[in-house]
Design a protein around this nucleic acid. Structure first.
Lengths: 230, 230
DNA sequence: GCTATTTGATGATATAAATCATGTAAAAGC
DNA sequence: GCTTTTACATGATTTATATCATCAAATAGC
């Protein structure tokens, strides 16, 4: 079930800003406890409602994080990519997962027990401060997403999503994405048909170009204006 | 401008779960730095976009926290009531406020500089752990609010709001609220007229009773069912 | 390589919610 | 106490978006 992917955390986690705060001894502690697992695209890493024992650190690939409701509707609330861990609020509250995580593509992740993480937070002030910064950034993203969902109409919401994918997730323009139209719809709080229609009007207006899995933003200023005004 | 409300933090903050983690010496440190201020209903405590220097601890009254957009639309993302502090993510990121806070009614609050708070977090593990739990609860509420806003229709959203006010804000049924119809609309992502209409159908269906500022939930199980199913 | 399934796309129609206009009641101000 | 302003409420209409049906293209499975 579990394949050892990285030989040692020291070699791997140097690339993550938060883990650079850890000393070699601390990294060794994490390395000793982690379980490294490979997930195929479509596989669930953790399920909303299930018990929450571990922190998940992504070493390759990408996960999408989403909330499901009683009627099988989903909203995507974020992504996790290398090298980063997923902040799971249930770790500090009721020990339950409040959203699910699925691999978008072939993904490898290391699972680290919550208590190991808690010890690092207790003992390493720099690590704790960087962790607090990350949590705060996520809170801000949640607030911005709520604002987008409620205060903007569909073009504004889709503009938000495309800008966030380009600037915040793939860090590139154009970008190649494994996300389906349903995924884009789930990020922007609309149905798949509506998402497809908005993308078509963006292409017709020469704001973007799509070609297979590639999306290119052709007119950033105009897209940002649509984003601002809804 | 500033009136000293409480004589000492020791006498005041004993009532807050997180501040009970502080020793007398730590409370004295906070007491020495705090500025206590009274706000009238409608006054702004801090404004979205403004620089973020302080943590705000409410000692009486209530604040509503909301996000504004370019078109003056608002969404209420939470409340702050005694005795509690407001988690402001900007304190740990860009030193800017990402939402505004206004007094709903006559409110008193103590402002404590961020660096004082950061020192407490660094030196007191129990305090830091309790703080982390609070932040995590807020994250969960944000996720639940997003789910409500996107995945439910108006009756489900209003049911969510009424249940949250009864269970989570006022801790009582019936409850007396200073919130306007516009506030209820801003919490549930609908216009004021739509909010008024949904409340009327709830009254007609004998789910709730409203009388002036008082709202009573008459049929909790049915309201919870509407909440679940949207 | 062929078949079945899924995804992307389009068009027509229905529904949910917003907007606009107006009136009444309550609260605020003088 | 009276007048003005604001909040609550209602009705009609418009707009935004979802839903449903269908087809073509791409992908998955055998």
């Amino acid at each position: 079930m579990a394949n050892t992917i990285e030989s040692h955390c020291l070699h791997c986690m140097q690339r993550s800003d938060i883990f650079t705060k850890l000393a070699e001894g601390e990294l060794a502690q994490v390395n000793a406890c982690r379980v490294s697992i490979r997930y195929h695209a479509g596989e669930v890493v953790f399920k909303q409602g299930s018990p929450c024992h571990d922190f998940v650190c992504i070493t390759s690939g990408m996960l999408k994080l989403y909330r499901e409701d009683e009627n099988d509707k989903r909203i995507i609330i974020g992504f996790a990519k290398p090298v980063d861990y997923i902040f799971v609020p249930g770790a500090f509250t009721d020990k339950r997962h409040h959203f699910s995580a699925i691999a978008c593509e072939e993904t490898t992740a290391c699972l680290v027990g919550i208590e190991v993480f808690e010890k690092l937070l207790r003992d390493n002030h720099d690590f704790a401060a960087a962790f607090m910064a990350k949590i705060s950034e996520q809170s801000i993203r949640f607030i911005e997403q709520m604002s987008s969902l409620v205060q903007k109409q569909m073009p504004g919401r889709m503009a938000d999503v495309l800008i966030e994918l380009s600037k915040g997730v793939y860090n590139s323009n154009p970008f190649v994405s494994s996300l389906s139209r349903q995924d884009l719809a789930d990020m922007s709080g609309m149905t798949k048909e509506s998402a497809i229609r908005i993308l078509k009007t963006f292409r017709d207006d020469e704001l973007i170009r799509t070609e297979g899995d590639t999306i290119e933003i052709l007119n950033y200023p105009m897209l940002e204006r649509i984003s601002r005004n809804g």
